[in-house]
């Protein structure tokens, strides 16, 4: 329509008195600043909602008791703890012996478990509460795949873990070999031996203050 053609071009408005400009600048800065602060505050509930239903303050004591009476030497059992696969193995004397063989320990990155990947009561040559029973969280410290367990065979009586994703190798106590990408030993969860046939995962008698969240890497 013709009205558009009639539309005048906008003109710069009336001159601004000099003193007014200065004061308005302060005021507009304050308003823009307050507006931005308000927008940030508004973003808070939206971003906070991305945390979902996680309630870290209350802490979750996830305890599971596992019956290992049917676990035979050389075998391992996989249970789920906090959504992670946990390997429970009953070690044979040959497996235990392999853990202390110098030609093997030389090839390990952290043979003495110096890096915090286990509760204090598992900082020992067998990385467990009792030598015969090993408990490991089965998540490769490289990029999170689940290592597969090679059961002891006549050729290799020590047993070991190898990660299918990028070839990281761990000995049967979850200690990582040097010539592979994974940087740390497999994590050991807090474990209490309730009896010879029952293991409690989630609570460590020898290190009661241990929190799995504090380890180097899961």
């Amino acid at each position: 329509m013709t009205q558009d053609a009639d539309r005048p071009t906008p003109l710069p408005s009336c001159p601004v008195p000099g003193g007014g400009t200065r004061r308005r600048d302060v005021l507009s800065t304050v308003i823009v600043g307050a507006g931005c602060a308000g927008a940030c505050a508004l973003a808070y509930p939206f971003l906070d909602s991305l945390n979902g239903t996680k309630n870290t303050e209350l802490g979750e004591d996830d305890l599971i008791d596992v019956d290992i009476s049917t676990l035979r030497p050389g075998q391992q059992l996989v249970v789920t703890w906090r959504g992670w696969p946990v390997f429970i193995q009953r070690r044979t004397p040959e497996m235990l012996a392999s853990l202390r063989m110098v030609d093997i320990t030389q090839r390990l990155r952290d043979p003495d478990s110096k890096i915090l990947q286990q509760p204090r009561d598992a900082v020992n040559w067998h990385r467990s509460v009792v030598p015969e029973i090993g408990v490991l969280i089965g998540i490769c410290t490289h990029l999170g795949c689940v290592p597969s367990y090679a059961t002891p065979s006549p050729n290799d009586r020590s047993g070991k873990y190898s990660c299918p994703c990028h070839g990281s190798q761990f000995d049967v106590a979850g200690r990582v070999f040097k010539d592979a990408p994974a940087p740390y030993n497999l994590p050991v969860p807090p474990v209490t031996m309730l009896s010879a046939t029952h293991v409690r995962i989630g609570q460590s008698k020898g290190d009661p203050d241990f929190s799995i969240a504090s380890i180097q890497q899961i």
Binding site: L27, I31, G38
Partner: peptide, 20 residues
């Protein structure tokens, strides 16, 4: 917060429109 911002904007608006 909104009340404060309202007051600030009211002052600002008054100042701006005074010219017209």
């Amino acid at each position: 917060y909104l009340a404060v911002l309202t007051v600030l904007l009211a002052i600002m608006k008054r100042r701006v429109w005074k010219r017209v």
